[in-house]
Amino acid sequence: MNPAALTLQLLELVMALLLAPLLMGWVNQCRAWTQNRKAPPITQPFRLLAKLFEKDVVLAYNASSLFRFVPYMLFACMALVCVIVPVLSTDLPFSPAADVIALVGIFALARLFIALAGMDVGTAFGGLGSRREMLIGFLAEPALLMVFFTASLISRSTALPTIVESLAHREFVIYPSLAFAGVAFILVSLAENARIPVDNPTTHLELTMIHEAMILEYSGRHLALIEWAAALKLYAYFSLGFGLFFPWGIPQGTGVGNVAMALPALLLKLAAGGFLLALIETLSAKMRVFRAPEFLGMAFLLAVIGMLVHMLLEVPA
């Protein structure tokens, strides 16, 4: 194995671990600005994590071993996703480990475990949150798969590095299907990351919460890991979106020059994307939970239309 590529892979992991909370802080900051509030510093998520890591873990006395195991599992899943998605280079040793379909599987695995953990202690909120999360998940997953299929049809591969490479290093062609897939992807990401039209990440209001309801029983380092994993998930979705729809600036090689070029591009894209997310969250109101199927049905529909449009307009007859 190429040592340069391995170093790059490690660098990508470390960068994901550090950038994910920063991204979370940046989104919160933008959201505060757009809502005319005083913004917390961008490093606020780190302080939260540090605080939580220092605190003791309080476990419910009927919590099973699964409950203690889930935060590590969740963190591992999200870190794995961040390692697989090509961000700094398309030539990473870990990338061939999973294609896009397996990637959706890893997300599903993480979702399964957190839903189980939500039900484990047996509180009403946990069960409620788990059920809602599974509802969202079962609607969001097919839409996400369809988005990936559209990109795969264009580049004729389900491997992420190949998709990113063929989309980034082609002559400039407008793909209408990718526009549809892009909108669908945004809708799915909002739902999957518990952002505002579907779920509110900052509230503990019992009627509306989904993600927060499941992790209500967690404390201390467990909660810290879960929060970190949530940040990693957001970061992973951002980098997936960049890879599929804005792949410019992700180099093929593993040289130092390539990375030096990729890093500013990534930071710029993250800043712009984070601001956009904050804008979406400010402009839209939280939906009723029972409107979520409609929202995600729309995402599925857009993704399917993207595929159909690809077949009609973009395949040589």
């Binding site: 407008i174 209408p176 299907s177 526009a179 549809f180 857009l302 239309i305 307009l313 973009e314």
Partner: peptide
């Protein structure tokens, strides 16, 4: 031609 295709897709949307 590509832009017309894109507009057609927007029309469908």
């Amino acid at each position: 031609g590509q832009i017309i295709n894109l507009l057609a897709a927007v029309l469908l949307l």
